[in-house]
């Protein structure tokens, strides 16, 4: 019998490690390793040894997912989470070995995971946890000092664009997911009232080494979203005024300076530059 080809061995082994059932695939694979098994016990033993690798792969990835999504895990309980995680890990194994980037698709997955289908906020909580993880590992950055703006001529102030530090992510939800997240990091969480609509406009970022989740004023969220696109202050502001109007809110011009001051206080800008495009 010719020797097993490495590519074939690795392809079949991978399939078997991720497959939900061991039976049919295993016979095939074990035949590749060894031509004959002397008796049934010998064959069962080989399957059990193969199962050690299957367990190692699936359980190590389930553990990693649990560490990435501690709040989702707490909300639905260990049993339900493990059920979801086992299915997710088999369907969506990591593409890269560095697991700090793993699990982005878990939010989409949990949205359609039948046992959790009535927890409509769960997918947004999962998305928030993913952004928290990304912020935790994101690159360090120098911070912009607002005092340096004094070098800019007053007529140029509207042309200023800002670069945000790499950890910043903006997300909206129809549910108070920031409260759900904060409470479920505590040993004894308070109940979060979901009886009324409480949409939130969140910014996830890392302040020095600590990840923060800030519930922004909805208008401030719109303005910051425009600044994040690289628009100069004056353009970002007029776009935000239009965006607010579409959502049925006023954004009076006199709020610009206080809103900028508030954003400067959050330490989320790394540098500014002067745009000549507008």
């Amino acid at each position: 019998m010719s020797k097993i080809k490495l590519a074939e061995f690795q392809g079949r082994f991978k399939q078997l490690l991720l497959s939900p059932v061991i039976e049919a695939d295993a016979n095939d694979f074990l035949g590749l390793i060894q031509e004959h098994y002397s008796d049934d016990d010998d064959f069962i033993e080989a399957k059990l040894r193969l199962a050690i690798y299957r367990n190692n792969v699936i359980h190590s990835l389930m553990t990693a997912l649990g560490e990435l999504y501690p709040v989702v895990k707490r909300l639905i309980g260990d049993d339900c989470f493990n059920h979801a995680a086992r299915k997710f890990v088999r369907n969506t194994p990591p593409a890269q070995a560095a697991l700090v980037f793993y699990g982005q698709e878990f939010s989409e997955f949990i949205k359609t995971f039948t046992p959790c289908i009535e927890l409509e906020f769960l997918a947004d909580v999962a998305a928030l946890e993913f952004f928290v993880n990304q912020a935790y590992h994101s690159g360090d950055s120098v911070l912009f000092d607002p005092a340096t703006l004094s070098e800019v001529a007053p007529e140029q102030l509207g042309n200023i664009t800002f670069s945000l530090i790499p950890s910043v992510t903006l997300m909206r939800s129809d549910w108070p997911i920031d409260s759900i997240w904060h409470e479920n990091l505590k040993v004894q969480p308070e109940l979060v009232d979901l009886s009324e609509s409480q949409p939130c406009s969140l910014m996830v970022y890392r302040r020095d080494m600590q990840v923060e989740v800030v519930n922004l004023d909805p208008n401030c969220f719109l303005f910051l979203s425009r600044l994040q696109q690289g628009l100069p202050i004056s353009v970002a502001w007029s776009e935000a005024v239009g965006d607010a109007k579409k959502q049925g809110r006023e954004l009076p011009d006199h709020e610009l300076s206080s809103m900028l001051g508030y954003l400067f206080g959050l330490s989320i800008f790394s540098r500014f530059s002067l745009s000549s495009e507008y």
Binding site: Q10, K14, Y53, S60, A64, P93, P94, A95, A97
Partner: peptide, 22 residues
């Protein structure tokens, strides 16, 4: 060992057959 195959990282140290090809 090996752990990566066609855009899947298996997060384990898997054995290879000790052949000339390997």
């Amino acid at each position: 060992s090996w752990s990566q195959h066609q855009q899947v990282a298996l997060n384990d140290l898997l054995p290879v057959p000790y052949t000339q090809e390997a």
